[in-house]
Structures are given as structure tokens and as C-alpha cells.
Amino acid sequence: MLTYFANLSPQHRRSWGLVVAYVALLLAVSYVDFGYNTAGQTAFRGILLGMLVFMVASGLSLIFGLLDVLNFAQGAFLLIGAYVGYDVYTSLDAGTTVRFLAAIVSGVVFVGVLGAIMETGLIRPLYDRPVFQIVLTFGLAAVLLDLVERYYGPDPKQPLDPPGFLDNNFTLFDQSLSYYRLFIIFLGLTMMVGVFLLLNRTRIGIIIRAGVQDSEMVQALGINVRLIFTLVFVLGAALAALGGIALVPYQGATLEMGNQFLILAIVVIVIGGMGSYEGTAIASIVVGLTRAVAEQLSLEHFDAPVLAETSILLLMIVVLLVQPSGLFGREE
């Protein structure tokens, strides 16, 4: 950890400073404006949202950082994960915990397979036509959304009961909360650390990074680079699906949630710096907090929580103007 900070470039060190100052400012503002308890609740909500956003953004960032593909279908993956998970969760005949685990497994596997088909069949032939790649993922997102709507109907699905072992409440900042929220935060953190370790500490991670750096070289070593690209894509898709399923007990499943989280994820990777994993992690929390505080602010002062939507876009504009390559991105 210490060596990490010692090795930071000056730009990144400044970015850390900015992030810490900004978060402190947010917390201070909410403390002054809402008082201790509401401020605490808001911050908790922000972190929760940050974790959820991270699940989509990390997939987006991984796929972009490693394959240079901007996958606009990431939101659709989340959506499909959520709906498939919902389907399994409600249709199985077993205890909640079992059903929940089954939902996770089936949703992740389903979306993973979908991702694999998409990468091998559609994305792979287009690596030398990047513009069409972007357009394709964008169009596919619309197609997938349409399919989900056709299959599951346009009505939103109500939130489900969290699995049994999490179906308890605890009190934080004078508010009774489900353990499930803690579980989401835990899941997000695990993912954060897990993917980091996977990429940096395991053999396959090293091969992935090498394959991306110099695919011909790695190919020459007798490693199937195409397979690696597919794996990365599948991993990204699966992360999004996991995020989607995690959302189901929390806020149900709606057709809009895919794009909603895609936009948040886009803002996150732009702010964090395209392709930077640590940037994505940090920016997720920042965006989550900003969003939660803005929501609370506009609720209290204008009675219009929807205004919070604009706050993250403003944040993105400011970052783009001040630091075009994002907080932790490489300079263009």
C-alpha cells in the first residue's frame, strides 16, 4: 500500500488529493445541511449506490481497458442478469437462500454464455473496424432491451425478499436497514479486490495483460489469445449480470435500469480515466456519493429528486474540462 502511494505519478497524486478533498466537502455539506443522522444515511446510500455502479462500470472498464472495445451492451447485460435472476428466484421451489444462490448462478452463467456468443460471433470479426464495433454494441443494446421487453413484458418487477440469512435488520444512523444492503457493499468490495487480484496476482491475469499488450508475442508463445479476449469479455458481462441480480431484492427489475446504470457507469469510467481499474473503483464511490447527496439536497430544497440526475453529468463535464483523460487515466 505504501509503495503504491510512493510510486504514484504527480498527476495521480494530485487526483487523490482532489478526490479526498471533494469527498470531504460532500460530507461536510451534507452534515451542515441535513444534520448528523440524515447525512450518515445519505453517505451510506451513496456508498451502496457506488458499489452497484461499480459492478457495471468495472465490466465496462475491464473490457475497454483490455480489449479497447467500448461495450454499450453492458447495461443490457445487467438487465438480462436481473430478469433471468428474477425469473429463477420466483419460479424455483426451495428456500430463499437456495433460490437466491441459484438465481446468481443461472443469471451469471446465462449472461456469460451470451457474452461468449457475442464476442466470438459478432465482436471478433470487427476488431479491425472499431467504429462498427461501437455501433454494433450500441445497436445490440437496443435489440436486447427489446427482446427482454417482449419476453418479460413492460411492467416493472417488484423488489423480492432478500434471502433468508440476510433478511434481518440493523440500525445505522437512526435508520433500520436490511442486512442485504451490507451484503451488496460486501459483494462490491469483494469484486473490487477479487478482480484486482485476478489481474495482478494470478497466472491467468498476467497472461491476459500480456495478451492485450502484445497479442502476437503471446500468440507466439502458444497461448490462444482469442480465447483470452473472449474470457475477458465474458468476465465483464458476468460482472454486470451479478450487479443486476444483486439489485433485484433491493429495487426490483425494470426495463430502465440497464440504461440507467450504463449512464452511471459511463460517467464513472470517464471520471476515473478510461481503462484504469483503480480509477473506476474510486470514481464509483465518488459518483455514488455525489448522486446521493445531490438527491437529498434537491429533495430538501426543491422537492425534485430527479434533479440529481444532472449532478453527475455536471461532475463529468467539470472533470472533462479540467482533466480530459480522467482522474487516473493515462495522458492522451
Binding site: I263, A304, L313, M316, L320, P324
Partner: peptide, 27 residues
């Protein structure tokens, strides 16, 4: 001034935001 994908992402976010604002019951 940035790479093309920034423009794609930015315009997408902008349009989606206005769509949400237009839909919301608040206004």
C-alpha cells in the same frame, strides 16, 4: 478534442438525462 468515444459517451449521457427529466413527474 478528445477521442471519438468520449463524444459518443457524453452525448449519450446528455440525451438520457434530458429524457429522464422530461419523463419525471416532478416537472
Amino acid at each position: 478534442r478528445l477521442r471519438g468515444i468520449y463524444f459518443a459517451m457524453f452525448t449519450l449521457a446528455l440525451a438520457e438525462m434530458f429524457w429522464v427529466l422530461a419523463k419525471s413527474g416532478t416537472f
